[in-house]
Amino acid sequence: MYDLIAFVIFLTLGYVFGQLAEKKHYKSIREREGELRKIIAVNSRFPPHDGVQRAGLLVTGSVVISVDYFKRFLAGLRSLLGGRITSYETLLDRARREAILRMKAEARQLGADMVFNMKLETSSISKNARGKIGSVEVLAYGTALVPVKP
């Protein structure tokens, strides 16, 4: 009985706070993406040939993000029926965009105008006893090209 009560409480807490956190996060992601749009991040392996002298420096951005109790429960249900697990899709989407934003912010601090050879890496760090995803780490890294004044 107590288990059931705890379960319902966790579910409600997860739903309320998870939804709030996700809305807030998406809002801040959209705002910062607007600010950092000028910095181009591409996965081309070779630098541009536009005659501008540039220096290259490694920049990284990473984030560890966790899914809430309610969404994990939904995902559990979904895996019985099969199909898209939207709750994990938004988790990964948020994590990737956040990591890219942090990388771009670092590039801007260095005075770079573009990031080349951008790579993304995802790994699930907390392996629960039940072997579910839980939380993921996303790392974005690339070479920031800083224009050199002659």
Binding site: G14, F17, A21, S66, Y69, I125
Partner: peptide
Amino acid sequence: MAGLKNIFGGELKGYTELLQ
């Protein structure tokens, strides 16, 4: 702390720093 965050969802700042 991470166990708590697993209920509420959101960024695990401690882990982000640790991995960095």
